[in-house]
């Protein structure tokens, strides 16, 4: 559904209505960078799961750059301190990757729980993030992990956090950019949990990291109609077991702004259940 060009009504574009476009299929990241420099109007395609939805909502690509030949973006690597996930990994392949399973099994578990079996074979983690669609779950999961998104742009390499990208922070690149890698710091990570039992009302991801003064807790909160929100708290203890679970959960949930309230749950309700879910995650992690 989209607004008619003169504002005189609503139209629902169908797949049959999509005109042909110029198609480019680079075979390397370097090639893809060059393509994007040449064709700033290009729309990037990977699994096409969200792209097709966008087309049905009115997107009409004149140039499409398919990344499917970029096998170099299907890797998962871990050097002991940082996990590097290629943006082209599908949910299925990425979550089942042995390197991920060994380096960060909690992320593998969370990632393996999202979407449906059928979607998981096709949709990519990069597409999930780039869509900026509120009900998608990777922004919550990777947001809580303070994942860095690495882009190639016409102006060179750029980098921002998932949270910055979701919030459209100035640090996030604008326009047609090529997300190629997601980078998660594993060195300081103590614990990670993801709870989607209340989905689609609310999902909660919690990362516990070692900080200079103790532990730093970062939670991502997702919902159907509002973008994911990050909340944080620092606790001056060294172990998860030593955290005041209820207190930390209360502190973080209290930071949720009023705008997390929507049709599916008021802000008051969201704060309350997020507090419950965070407390349970902390108890489980302890």
């Amino acid at each position: 559904m989209r607004l008619q060009s003169r504002g005189a009504g609503l139209l629902t574009p169908t797949q049959a209505a999509l005109p042909p476009f110029d198609l480019l299929r680079p075979t390397s990241l370097a090639d893809a960078r060059a393509v994007l420099a040449d064709r700033p109007e290009a729309v990037i395609a990977a699994g096409c799961t969200d792209l097709v939805a966008a087309i049905r909502e009115g997107l009409v690509p004149s140039t499409l750059v398919s990344l499917r030949n970029l096998d170099e973006l299907r890797t998962v690597e871990h050097d002991g301190t940082a996990l590097r996930i290629g943006a082209l990994n599908t949910h299925h392949d990425g979550s089942a990757h042995p390197v991920l399973g060994a380096a960060l099994p909690e992320l593998a578990d969370a990632w393996s729980a999202i979407a449906t079996v059928r979607i998981r074979f096709r949709a990519t983690v990069g597409g999930n993030l780039m869509a900026r669609r509120y009900r998608y779950e990777m922004p919550v999961i990777l947001g809580a992990l303070e994942t860095a998104m690495e882009f190639s742009t016409a102006a060179g390499e750029r980098r921002c956090t998932v949270d910055e990208f979701v919030r459209r922070d100035p640090a996030a690149p604008e326009g047609r950019t090529l997300l190629h890698t997601l980078s998660v710091d594993t060195a300081s990570l103590v614990a990670f949990r993801y709870d989607r039992s209340m989905r689609p009302v609310t999902t909660v991801a919690l990362a516990v990291r070692r900080s200079r003064d103790g532990l730093r807790l970062t939670a991502g909160v997702g919902s159907e109609y509002r973008r994911a929100v990050l909340v944080r708290t620092d606790v001056p203890v060294a172990e998860v077991t030593a955290i005041d679970h209820a207190g930390a959960a209360h502190e973080m949930a209290g930071q949720l702004p009023d705008r997390v309230g929507d049709y599916a749950g008021s802000a008051r309700y969201r704060r309350r259940i997020v507090e419950v879910l965070l407390r349970r995650q902390l108890e489980a992690a302890a």
Binding site: Q4, S5, R6, A8, G9, L11, P13, T14, A16, A17, L18, P19
Partner: peptide
């Protein structure tokens, strides 16, 4: 075709 039909509706 549907593409033309939608294009026409866009002109109303």
């Amino acid at each position: 075709d549907e593409r033309t039909a939608l294009a026409a509706l866009d002109l109303i």
